[in-house]
């Protein structure tokens, strides 16, 4: 399994649980799940690029 696949799997499993902990109502939870998932993946990819560019 690649790093990216593990990241996506982790984000997909953790996001709905956080949504159920932090939001009430299924519509709000669905929005939070999408936001958390994209944040997990986006920040990890972004930080990865920063490390790559900073490391030369």
């Amino acid at each position: 399994m690649s790093h990216f696949a593990a990241l996506v799997l982790f984000a997909a499993l953790v996001s709905p649980a956080f949504a159920c902990l932090m939001r009430e109502g299924w519509a709000a939870r669905l929005r939070f799940t999408a936001w958390a998932f994209l944040s997990f993946v986006g920040f990890a990819v972004g930080i990865g690029w920063i490390m790559y560019l900073a490391g030369g």
């Binding site: 399994m1 593990a6 799997l9 982790f10 499993l13 953790v14 709905p16 649980a17 159920c20 299924w26």
Partner: peptide, 21 residues
């Protein structure tokens, strides 16, 4: 029940994948 099911599936799959990896 719905919330509990989400927790059961999320945490269960995290654990199962963790063992599988």
């Amino acid at each position: 029940r719905g919330t509990g099911a989400v927790f059961l599936v999320s945490i269960g799959l995290l654990f199962v994948f963790g063992i599988g990896m």
